[in-house]
Simulated assay, not measured.
Amino acid sequence: MDVEKMLQQFKQTADETIFRDIQDTTALEGRIRSRLQKQRRGFFWKAWPVGITAAAVALICFLWLPGSIVVSPTDPVRPADPGATHGGGWGGPPAQVIQAHTPSDEEIAEKVEELKQQIQIGMTQEQVKELLGPPDYVMEREGGSTEAANEFWNYSYLKQAGYEPDQSGSTVDEEGLRTGKVGVSLFLAWTWKESKLHQFSISYPKGTDVLSYSANPDGTVKVENLTHPNQQEKVDVENGAFTLDLQKSQKQRYEEFAKANQDEALDGLEPLDIIKMYYYAKETADYETQYALYYQDPDSEIPSRQEFLQDLKTDTVGAENSRVFIKELREHGKEYSIIRQDENSAVVWIKFDNKRKPLGFQLKKTQVGVWKVCWMPIQ
């Protein structure tokens, strides 16, 4: 099989297929090439043990006033109870990802970050259905204040094929999370008056604990350790207006790094600075510096410098796709947020003012303590 010929055909038809919205296909091409050449090293990640959690109970107790609850299972893989609305009735994609293996730490972290960026307070139910598909369970409160939350949706992600929880969707599947049969649980609370998203929480395992990320009606966010309430998780979040253009000081630091090719030249720069430099290198065809900005992860399949430069010489379609993507990033990227769960890893999320969904760019710190871009960085 001629792998490069096949990739060339793929790139030439990308704009005419279901990949037409992917402006930069470099990462996808890398995955295809890696699989076809059978160089990917298969491995399974061990799932984090999960402690007992009551995330949904806490959320529901906080939001509900006294009243009766109607629970309607709408799980696409579970037979609906008589009279209940089945999840497929709304159309759209299934709410959850069904898989055979235990979700890895990486898969869980990526799904949590994706949901944080996708879900926004004030969204309508139709917007959420279009984005996520039908919920697994719908819980309704009959009666009560028109200003309080009265309807609650539950989604389960990274769920193992064939697994069915014992309890209903009104509580977090503690057993499933603890045993790795479910990776992430999402709860949404809706207002009675306008069916707008009032509050949401994401429950997920980390180490031996279960954490809950919650977004509140006033715009504040909080991460709680549900297993050990007195040991709260510290999450560093930075937000602001986004511009791709390098400032004078950033360009000077870029030139110093490009000339010296020493990691120490990046000392003190933040993740957003590195992302800007990375795309400046791509835009100016400074591929030597672009490659130098990659984090050399021994567990990834990053090509050698020589292989990387050689591929770029013949990849005219990829270069055009990159040019189009960078143009969109410059013109329509309007807001950024940087999320750091620990000292050595970060995700820079960019939100667009057109129809493109937010994109996350992954970075890691090197042994000398400077930030670099992960290979195939876009989430």
Rank of each mutant, 00 (worst) to 15 (best):
D2I: 03
K5M: 12
K5A: 15
L7M: 09
L7G: 03
Q8T: 12
F10Y: 14
K11A: 15
Q12A: 08
T13N: 14
T17Q: 01
F19A: 06
R20S: 15
I22V: 13
Q23N: 15
T26F: 10
R31F: 15
R33G: 01
R35L: 06
R35C: 03
R41Q: 14
G42Q: 13
F44Q: 09
K46P: 03
K46A: 10
A54T: 13
A56G: 12
V57A: 09
L59R: 07
I60M: 13
F62E: 15
L63S: 08
W64N: 10
S68T: 12
S68M: 11
I69F: 08
P76L: 04
V77N: 14
P79M: 04
A80G: 14
I98E: 14
Q99K: 13
A100M: 14
T102D: 12
T102K: 14
P103C: 06
P103W: 06
S104V: 00
D105Q: 14
E107P: 01
E110M: 08
K111W: 09
E114W: 07
Q117L: 09
I119Q: 00
Q125A: 12
Q127T: 08
E130D: 14
L131V: 03
L132K: 00
D136P: 00
V138H: 01
R141F: 03
E147R: 10
N150R: 13
N150P: 01
E151W: 01
E151L: 07
W153G: 02
Y155I: 01
Y155W: 05
Y157I: 03
K159F: 03
Q160P: 00
G162N: 07
Y163H: 07
E164W: 08
D166R: 14
G169I: 03
G176F: 00
L177M: 10
G180L: 03
V182L: 08
G183Y: 01
G183E: 02
S185Y: 11
L186Y: 06
S195G: 06
S195I: 00
S195Q: 15
L197A: 02
H198E: 10
S201W: 03
I202C: 01
P205E: 04
K206Y: 11
T208D: 13
D209S: 09
D209Y: 04
S214I: 11
N225V: 05
P229C: 04
G240F: 07
A241M: 13
D245N: 10
K248Q: 12
S249Q: 12
K251W: 13
Y254D: 02
E255V: 00
D267K: 14
P271H: 00
D273K: 02
D273N: 12
D273E: 06
I275W: 11
K276Y: 02
K282E: 12
E283G: 13
T284N: 08
A285C: 06
D286E: 00
Y287E: 09
Q290I: 02
A292K: 09
D297E: 09
E301C: 01
E301Q: 11
E301H: 15
R305T: 02
Q306P: 02
L312T: 00
K313T: 13
V317A: 11
E320G: 02
S322H: 11
I326R: 09
E328M: 10
L329W: 07
E335Y: 10
Y336C: 05
S337F: 00
I338F: 03
E343H: 10
E343F: 05
V347I: 13
F352Q: 08
G360P: 01
Q362T: 11
L363Q: 09
V370D: 01
W371A: 02
W375I: 04
M376E: 15
Q379K: 10
